[in-house]
Design a protein around this nucleic acid. Structure first.
Length: 253
DNA sequence: ATGGCTGTTAGTAACAGA
């Protein structure tokens, strides 16, 4: 099974590229983030025409997540308990539980969005309490955390910022420590692991990015290959994120 | 040098992203 996660930064603005990407990469399951639309604005017909079932959670100009699957899709949850923004979707897809997450940015450590981000992580962690780490599961998306300084093109620029604080990194560790593997992609350009590059200042061209998009896989998943699809960040009108693509097999208990 | 760009809804400006 091939799965992928991609922060598309508006599914409307990205539709031609999304459809081309689905046709050329052929993911069985794709988790999208930042669709930036309500259900009425989601291109269901175009995506379904490629053979995908779609679960979309969105309410307008910000946030929005989706799960696309051509191996079956049964929705499980469209929100974290107590969290109202459209940043979370879970579905069962061909024997694999798939969660698409768009973790709040946090903005600044002295902003109210920062404790909100940590609360959001805690709510995400609590969803695992009732689950079996041996069951096939992936939680993937834009986590807005660089787990280590190696995940930043210039760690000095992020001192005092969100995305790198011990609390945010501990929140990621708490997910991993429950029993999820941070799937490491094949080395990319210059062996750098980035999945996001700012639009400004030629950051992508200089490979000055961040690793903030992750695939977290349970022990019920055997990873066969993983890579960051940098080609999807090239050319005209790209998202500022690249997809992470993972080939895997389900491990029977 | 904390900017540089791109998206949305708005209606030629504000806000958000990371």
């Amino acid at each position: 099974m091939r799965i992928a996660t991609w922060n598309v930064n508006s599914v409307g603005a990205r539709l031609p590229r999304l459809l081309d990407w689905l046709e050329t990469r052929q993911p069985d399951v794709a988790a999208l983030q930042e669709t930036k639309c309500a259900d009425a604005g989601f291109p269901f017909a175009e995506v379904e025409a490629l053979g995908y079932e779609v679960m979309h959670v969105g309410d307008g100009r910000w946030n929005g997540v989706a799960i696309l699957s051509r191996v079956g899709l049964t929705p499980v949850a469209d929100a974290l308990p107590g969290m109202t923004e459209p940043r979370y979707a879970t579905a069962d897809c061909g024997g694999l539980r798939v969660t698409s997450v768009y973790v709040p940015n946090g903005r600044a450590v002295d902003d109210a969005q920062y404790p909100y981000k940590l609360e959001w992580f805690a709510a995400l962690r609590r969803t695992l309490d009732e689950l079996d780490p041996a069951a096939p599961q992936v939680i993937m998306g834009d986590f807005n955390v660089a787990r280590t300084d190696a995940d930043l093109w210039d760690p000095a620029l992020f001192v005092g910022s969100t995305h790198v604080t011990p609390a945010e990194r501990a929140a990621m560790d708490a997910l991993v420590d429950w029993g999820l593997t941070d799937v490491v992609a094949r080395p990319g350009k210059n062996d750098r692991p980035y999945t996001y590059w700012d639009y400004r200042a030629g950051r992508f061209h200089q490979d000055q990015g961040m690793r903030i998009d992750y695939v977290l896989a349970s022990a019920g998943v055997a990873v066969e290959d993983a890579y960051v699809d940098r080609d999807a960040r090239k050319g005209k009108l790209p998202s500022d994120h690249a997809p992470v693509v993972v080939d895997l097999a389900l491990v029977s208990a």
